[in-house]
Amino acid sequence: MSIIWHITSAVAILSTLMVVTRYNPVHALLYLNVSLMSLALLFYLLGAPFAALLEIIVYAGAIMVLFIFVIMLLNLGKETAVQEKKWLKPRVWVGPMALALILLLEIFYLLHTSQQMTGGPYANGRGLGTAVSSRAVALSLFQTYVIGVEMAALLLMAAVVGAAHIGRHKKTNLHRFLNEDHPL
């Protein structure tokens, strides 16, 4: 009776396999996006809708945009437009489209049939699909794990400062004999 779960895990495994086997970074990113969405659907099936939404917002939204920006920055050049036109053939995007369409149909089915989003008593152990409400998550997060939240905030701030420092584009100082632009 767990046909939705099996389909979603098959989509997750397939798209993850495609992520690690693609040659083109953009194709790998398309498949990684599908993999993240299928994991979000798995979280929803496991009764964690808050984690599913965060997976879509943070991973498939923010982190994916970071990757795309870096790939854009690395591909500067005249041949980019030609390459883009060459990449964007239907053969490229029909695979991620098909996998994402499966996930979309599944979530339509779930929204029509399931009552999980209404939540329920969370600690009665009535099986794996029982929803843990976001209220319980928030209470646990800001009472038991509040020191972890502060450490995560510190980690994120260190990451922002570190990324700004590392990503600064320094001029390389060559010796004047090695500098071919301005010969003596």
């Binding site: 009764g47 969370y122 843990v132 990451a159 570190g162």
Partner: peptide, 24 residues
């Protein structure tokens, strides 16, 4: 989800924050 406790999702939130820092 197996234990019906929110701790798993809390740990997932920490993993999410750590992944964002690591990616940047």
């Amino acid at each position: 989800a197996y234990w019906g406790q929110p701790d798993g999702q809390v740990m997932f939130l920490f993993i999410l924050a750590m992944a964002a820092a690591e990616v940047s």
